[in-house]
């Protein structure tokens, strides 16, 4: 991975709050750990869409970037995307999913998704998605 890009990402993340939404605990912790490794200092985790909305309301803190699984119980990623974009249009939303077929990507785009990370993910794929949504040019 380009070290200059990682440096720019780290700088951009220092004053950003991030919300990780994923129902499987090891995957949730993995995303949060990778984000911290990239320089994020404010990372909140939620287990599904319902939990994510509850945490946003309870903490009165709208995240700058949401990284969210698609398939989850209670409220899935697509519904969370729809609700967040309705209430907080400035939130950048990255969908992390195995649903990479064209129909799924188009559906997510229709609902306003800003970035897409195919599972299984890596530091590189998360970095690339963050660069896109944060407006950092990949050299």
């Amino acid at each position: 991975m380009n070290q200059d890009l990682e440096k720019l990402i780290a700088e951009a993340l220092t004053n950003k709050s991030l919300l990780v939404v994923e129902d499987t605990s090891s995957s949730r912790m993995l995303v949060a750990g990778l984000l911290r490794g990239l320089g994020a200092t404010r990372v909140v985790a939620a287990v599904d869409g319902v939990d994510a909305l509850a945490k946003i309301q309870a903490q009165h803190l709208v995240p700058d970037v949401v990284l969210c699984d698609w398939v989850m119980p209670n409220m899935d990623g697509l519904e969370l995307l729809t609700r967040l974009k309705a209430d907080y249009p400035a939130v950048k939303f990255i969908m992390m999913t195995v649903k990479t077929e064209a129909e799924a990507v188009i559906l997510a785009r229709k609902h306003g998704v800003d970035g897409y990370v195919a599972k299984p993910f890596s530091r590189e794929s998360i970095t690339a998605a963050l660069a896109k949504v944060l407006g950092i040019a990949v050299g």
């Binding site: 129902d23 499987t24 090891s26 995957s27 699984d69 195995v98 599972k119 299984p120």
Partner: peptide, 14 residues
């Protein structure tokens, strides 16, 4: 379906 989907993602990520 949900259980194996979830475990699949966790396993492949790691």
């Amino acid at each position: 379906q949900r259980a194996v989907h979830s475990l699949k993602g966790a396993a492949l990520n790691l």
